[in-house]
Design a protein around this nucleic acid. Structure first.
Length: 632
RNA sequence: GGGGUGGUAGUUAAGUCGGUUAUAACGCCGGCCUGUCACGCCGGAGGCCGCGGGUUCGAGUCCCGUCCACCCCGCCA
């Protein structure tokens, strides 16, 4: 029997490398793990042995076992080894460097009071020199980390993240099951449905010229579970979207998906709030009741969020709110500033409507104590340009309320300047930053500018949380958004979101005014979940389709099975999906979603390790009757 | 599709105004060391400067193109 087999079959591991404490002194133990560091003193040799639990120092003393000591001399980084030995107190030792007796305890290690004196050792497997060092402190570029993901995952930091993910999964299942939710599965291979995110397509071998789609979410199926009478559903489920990636997006990602019958918006919120409380308790041991004594998170209307923050996922950890100046600009007819006068003119002559503002004016105040140099503001301007802005107008407020360093300074009327100072609450030394023009651009630029400044001025960390958890429900968004390309109304969400009862009257006449029971839950500026109360009334559904210009035939063709289901005894229902990866990312205080996904894709959607996506043979394509079009 | 940042030894980085032998730390290899803990000390090896063109007497450095990674806009819950 080889030594390896004997250690695995007979000797057996007794403890993990993070387990041993002073109470274990005197025990004979067996540890298996990876060689983290080795320190050689000619005679005495120390090895830091690492596994997923932690690190234990093991000592090889030639006086005790020459054989084990000789073997240990061959150990290198990341070899997989096993040792059998006795736990002992590290005690007081004579330090040659310091010339006195010192405690050999290592307070930086959980196991630091003890060490294992080795009697017998075995090498399970050698390792070539790893392409990078397995340490939290040493950073390697993303490309290398992803190519050797299994090595990256050995780093204690990532090990911790994945243990947290496991705990999250467990907590969700336990909590929701306890609330009467059934964990039900839905198909991944589904029929392509237009609208929303782009689907990954899967050719059907059995049906030529036909394709499945990978489910972008279980949306329709969970509604059908409601129609089937399951009442409360949840699933921790993979979803697939073929869209461009971001720091917080992967092409395949995991949702905590939920749906409930006979509920209103408050019921959904209560359920989610309780789940979030349970998660924070389990993961951090934090009772969110201390921060949210009512047990509920604050709510903000979509409109308000756009006005104050420029997006629908405001980071409430800091202020720097936007100030909306469009009305003021109109009232002052641009106040002598040609570019603003042009915008005011649009509203005054009726080209622009206040109800659907196409162009707006916004400002943001950088307080006097946050000194930004000229170079800093120039960089801010570049930052704004990169997002489609024409520039970044600014003004430094003087002691008398006058403006300097501003392109507006020489043209603006004193009345308009005073009115703006008052509207934004400007004080001497403050820096005012302005954006004006197309609504979407202004919102995007100002929202990102706010975040950028928040980080630059140290109001929020570059990433991570510092334990500041700011939750928010964003509610009552419009049901439709105007698509300028097609000059028609398009669903802002999926087409089965329930409009507010008091808005149904506008469906035919003024679609832009229709608000709906759609909601997002936001944490520290990240949208961690979203859902809606669904439209279960076939009549209202028909009016929504009409407003969208979708004919009965077209609706039938696209969503026929769901429309039919809604006519066959569908209960009122609604639900939500929480982004598991984003939650895990925030839990980990991590800088990227890739840190919390086992084997993530790059921003171009490739897997650096397996080199997916890869080519397939002509035979494989032929079997699927799929041709490849060469583009130049 | 657009904008930005980066790519130099196994790894992380430095490399000035274009100048002759491209640095450092860690890692790797060899040696010494019985209380270290990211041990220490001595010695050594290691480079297609992402790739392809161009400018130049001369390119890691300047120009053009291209690939890869990251961040953002568009897109997307």
């Amino acid at each position: 029997m080889t030594n390896v087999a004997r250690f695995i079959d007979e000797v057996k591991r007794t403890h993990s490398c993070g387990q041993l404490r002073a109470a274990d002194i005197g025990k004979e133990v067996v540890l298996f793990g990876w060689v983290q560091y080795y320190r050689d003193f000619g005679g005495l040799r120390f090895i830091d042995l690492r596994d997923r639990d932690g690190i234990t120092q093991v000592v090889f003393d030639p006086d005790l076992s020459q054989e084990a000591h000789d073997l240990a001399n061959t150990f290198r980084h990341e070899w997989v080894v096993g040792i059998r030995g006795v736990v002992r107190d590290r005690g007081m030792q004579f330090s040659k460097k310091k010339g006195e007796m010192v405690s050999a305890h290592n307070t930086a290690l959980a196991t630091g009071e003890v060490e294992v004196l080795v009697r017998e050792a075995v090498v399970f497997n050698k390792s070539e020199t790893p392409p990078f060092e397995i340490e939290d402190s040493v950073d390697t570029n993303e490309e290398k980390r992803l190519k050797y993901r299994y090595l990256d995952l050995r780093r204690p930091k990532l090990q911790k993240i994945f243990r947290t993910r496991s705990l999250m999964n467990q907590t969700v299942r336990q909590h929701l099951s306890g609330q009467g939710f059934l964990e039900l599965e839905t198909p991944v291979l589904v029929k392509y449905t237009p609208g929303g995110a782009r689907n990954f397509l899967v050719p059907s071998r059995l049906h030529h010229k036909k394709f499945y789609a990978l489910a972008e979410s279980p949306q329709l199926f969970k509604q059908l579970y409601m129609v089937a009478g399951f009442d409360k559903y949840f699933q921790i489920v993979k979803c697939f979207r073929d869209e461009d990636l971001r720091l917080d997006r992967q092409p395949e990602f995991t949702q905590i998906d939920m749906e409930m019958s006979f509920v209103n918006q408050d019921d959904v919120f209560n359920t989610v709030e309780q789940l979030i409380f349970a998660l924070w308790q389990a993961v951090f041991g934090v009772d969110l009741k201390e921060r949210y004594p009512t047990g509920h998170f604050p709510r903000m209307k979509f409109d308000e969020s756009m006005r104050r923050f420029g997006n629908d996922k405001p980071d409430l950890r800091f202020d720097l709110e936007h100030v909306e100046l469009t009305e003021l600009t109109i009232a002052h007819k641009g106040g002598g500033v040609p570019l603003l006068a042009e915008i005011a003119e649009g509203y005054l002559n009726g080209t622009d409507r206040r109800e659907v503002p196409q162009r707006i004016v916004k400002a943001l105040v950088v307080p006097a104590q946050s000194t930004l140099s000229r170079a800093d503001t120039d960089k801010l301007e570049d930052f704004c340009r990169s997002m489609g802005a024409k520039g970044l107008a600014r003004a430094r407020v003087g002691e008398d309320g006058g403006w300097t360093q501003s392109p507006f300074a020489k043209n603006i009327t004193a009345e308009f300047r005073t009115a703006i100072n008052e509207a934004v609450g400007a004080r001497p030394g403050d820096l005012l930053l302005f954006q004006f023009g197309p609504t979407a651009m202004v919102h995007t630029v100002m929202a990102n500018l706010r975040l950028h400044l928040g980080k630059k001025l140290g109001l929020i960390p570059e990433y991570g949380t510092r334990d500041a958890w700011k939750f928010l429900w964003v509610i009552d968004p419009p049901l439709f958004e105007f698509d300028e390309k097609t000059n028609s109304w398009a669903p802002a969400h999926h087409a089965f979101t329930r409009p507010h009862d008091d808005c149904v009257q506008y469906l035919g006449t003024d679609p832009g005014r229709v608000l709906c029971h759609r909601y997002d839950i936001v944490l520290n500026g990240f949208e961690i979940g979203g859902g809606s109360i669904r439209l279960h009334d076939p009549d209202v559904q028909a009016r929504v389709f009409a407003a969208l210009g979708i004919s009965e035939d077209e609706a039938k063709q696209k969503f026929g099975f769901l429309l039919e289901a809604l006519r066959l005894g569908a209960p009122p229902h609604g639900g939500i999906a929480l982004g598991m990866d984003r939650l895990a990312m925030l839990f980990a205080g991590s800088e990227s979603i890739r840190d919390v996904v086992g084997f993530p894709k790059t921003q171009k959607g490739t897997d650096q390790m397996t080199e997916a996506p890869g080519p397939v043979t002509a035979e494989q394509l032929a079997e699927l009757r799929v041709g490849v079009i060469e583009t130049t």
